[in-house]
Design a protein around this nucleic acid. Structure first.
Length: 367
DNA sequence: AATTTCCCCAACCGCGAAGTT
DNA sequence: TAACTTCGCGGTTGGGGAAAT
């Protein structure tokens, strides 16, 4: 396994491309195509290495490249695909015509990632940040259990921003997740084939690119857990297993983004049917309707199941989706068009999530 | 107006996979 | 089969412009 010689050998030029260089590269490729990147620069009269030429062409000069701001649809696609594929930028780019992996990667790192962090969502696992959850949970629990400190809460401006029940719910569910992770593994294995089918249907290109080279254990956890229902085993003590949550870091997302229905949350951000001690409730008591978790076929918990897109509370949708949001954002009254500013997007997200981490918690120190 | 800080993104680097000899 | 070459990917950097001081 060798490595291509580096550009700095042979005195090849590095750094920004000049218009003249661009034109040379374009002219050459238009005439001869791009077969051999190694010999291309020499033939094209460029003092560049082939790698640099390839990068310049694929990321900038290619005629089918789309420039300009990412649309909501593109953003949602990126977030959804990232939740499945992780940092497989090239695979993500394959689903976004005209966008390069480099552009998507940059956009993720400079925009989406930061926004998720500000919202308390781990951009890697697409789930609420554990550290912030625990911290906020402790803090808010203390404040709520000790009314004398409520004034402190108000003073700090914490209460309106952090939904303590939500945090407690999430934190406790995380514990349950750990206990059931092995069961999840079993689920994952059982449903792997089905997942692959779903993915194949929804993202044939991506699946084709990955299925042959990506064994199950290498598929990002989000992918394998899309159709595994983390809550299904909550009432089955026999299935309690040794913790191994690291294998399934994104299972949490399944709870928050898929199994919590927006309709179950009241306008003040509190779940309408959340009991004081929800753990003692029947396992599928989170739903206000008759619909239970067990009623969902496994596949219907997939983020990508179109039939479910208007029912489940999805981070990705909350972040950016006008089309699949429960509030029918395509309507004139609520639709946020592609020209909206990032602040507007984030403001919208925050309103929906009620999950903003207050600055007072010095969150930046965790990020 | 000058300086500093922040942010974005084009480009580079190193690695591994695939292909070739 | 091993050695080598080429390609493509993901992580990272640093230059330059914008914003803040």
């Amino acid at each position: 396994m060798g490595r291509a010689p580096c550009c700095d050998k042979n005195g090849l030029k590095k750094g920004p491309w000049t218009p003249e260089e661009d034109q040379k590269l374009i002219d050459y490729i238009q005439k001869h195509g791009y077969g051999n990147w190694r010999t291309l620069p020499k033939n094209a009269g460029l003092q560049r290495c082939g790698k640099s030429c390839r990068l310049r062409w694929t990321n900038y000069l290619r005629p089918d490249i789309k420039r300009g701001r990412f649309s909501f649809e593109e953003e949602e696609t990126i977030i959804q695909l990232h939740s499945i594929l992780g940092n497989k930028w090239s695979a993500i780019a394959a689903r976004l015509p005209g966008r390069t992996d480099n552009e998507i990667k940059n956009y993720w790192n400079t925009h989406i990632r930061k926004r998720l962090l500000r919202m308390g969502i781990d951009p890697v696992t697409h789930s609420p940040r554990l550290d912030l959850l625990d911290l906020s949970s402790i803090l808010s629990s203390s404040l709520y259990n000790n009314p004398s400190q409520m004034s402190v809460s108000r003073l700090l401006g914490i209460q309106p921003l952090v939904n303590p029940e939500f945090l407690r719910l999430a934190t406790n569910l995380l514990s349950s997740q750990r206990e059931n992770s092995n069961f999840l593994l079993q689920n994952v294995q059982e449903n792997h084939l089905y997942d692959a089918q779903v993915l194949q249907n929804q993202f044939p290109q991506v699946v084709q690119q990955n299925q042959l080279q990506t064994p199950l254990q290498e598929i990002p956890a989000c992918t394998t857990t899309l159709s595994t229902t983390p809550c299904v085993s909550f009432n089955s003590e026999a299935q309690l297993m040794e913790p191994n949550v690291e294998q399934f870091p994104s299972n949490i997302t399944n709870f928050t983004s898929q199994n919590c229905q927006l309709s179950d949350w009241q306008s003040d951000g509190m779940p309408s049917n959340l009991a004081e001690d929800y753990v003692a409730m029947p396992s599928y008591g989170y739903y206000g309707s008759d619909q239970t978790i067990m009623d969902h076929p496994i596949s219907e918990n997939s983020n990508f199941h179109s039939n479910n897109s208007n029912q489940n509370f999805r981070f990705a949708s909350v972040l950016s989706t006008p089309s699949s949001s429960p509030t029918h954002l395509n309507s004139n009254s609520t639709y946020i068009n592609s020209s909206s500013t990032e602040d507007e997007r984030e403001s919208y997200c925050s309103d929906m999530m009620k999950f903003e981490i207050p600055d007072i918690l010095a969150v930046n120190g965790f990020m």
